[in-house]
């Protein structure tokens, strides 16, 4: 039950993009086409789940016993950067079609603040291992949901008569605002 609450709240109520403002760069940059948005979402979910669990292990098995908690930021970002590299090589070897689909988005993920955000938030919220796993999965799927909805709206927006100076980031942010308003409706869920 507890786990379900964590999952639903990471997915809908405290959606990473629309509530924590994490992963806004790819949200604005990669959300202009539906299929690429979906690939990006899957790549993020994948890396996010692995990164959160690995950083959890590092934090509680390495940093806490040796009282090195202040190295949190440096070690997490190094873990994420190297993890992205490893995942990229692994996928390339094991599943070339998946690599084709995710390829160009994988390196970009290193600088996606959502990944580091999940790792930092699990420490802040003092989750245990299983809760971390569920939280990361929910957050990743929440990111996918938000970016896919956004891409769907933006494909329609292309045919709309938007003022010249509002095009691009401006209209995307205002649309995201309306989306955030809609997601506020989920807050009564838990």
């Amino acid at each position: 039950m507890e786990l379900l609450v964590i999952f639903i709240s990471a997915l809908l109520i405290n959606n990473f993009v629309l509530h924590y403002f994490l992963g806004i760069c790819p949200f604005i940059g990669v959300s202009n086409r539906l299929d690429s948005a979906f690939s990006m979402g899957l790549a993020v979910t994948f890396v996010m789940t692995i990164a959160a669990t690995v950083s959890w292990l590092i934090y509680y098995l390495l940093l806490v016993p040796y009282h090195l908690e202040f190295l949190e930021i440096v070690s997490f970002i190094l873990v994420i950067a190297s993890l992205v590299q490893v995942v990229e090589m692994f996928i390339k070897k094991v599943s070339p079609p998946l690599y084709q689909a995710l390829g160009i988005y994988l390196p970009l993920i290193t600088t996606n603040c959502a990944i580091l955000g999940v790792a930092l938030l699990t420490v802040l919220k003092k989750y245990n291992f299983i809760e971390t796993l569920i939280f990361a999965l929910g957050a990743g799927l929440g990111f996918t949901l938000a970016i896919v909805i956004m891409a769907g709206i933006r494909e329609e927006l292309e045919f709309a008569d938007v003022p010249e100076t509002l095009k691009g980031a401006g209209i995307t942010l205002i649309t995201a605002g309306i989306l955030a308003l809609a997601f506020m409706g989920f807050s009564g869920l838990v």
Binding site: H19, T172, I174, G177, I178, A180, M184
Partner: peptide, 9 residues
Amino acid sequence: PAGAFFVLG
């Protein structure tokens, strides 16, 4: 959160 998106937009 919604206000942040509107104002920046």
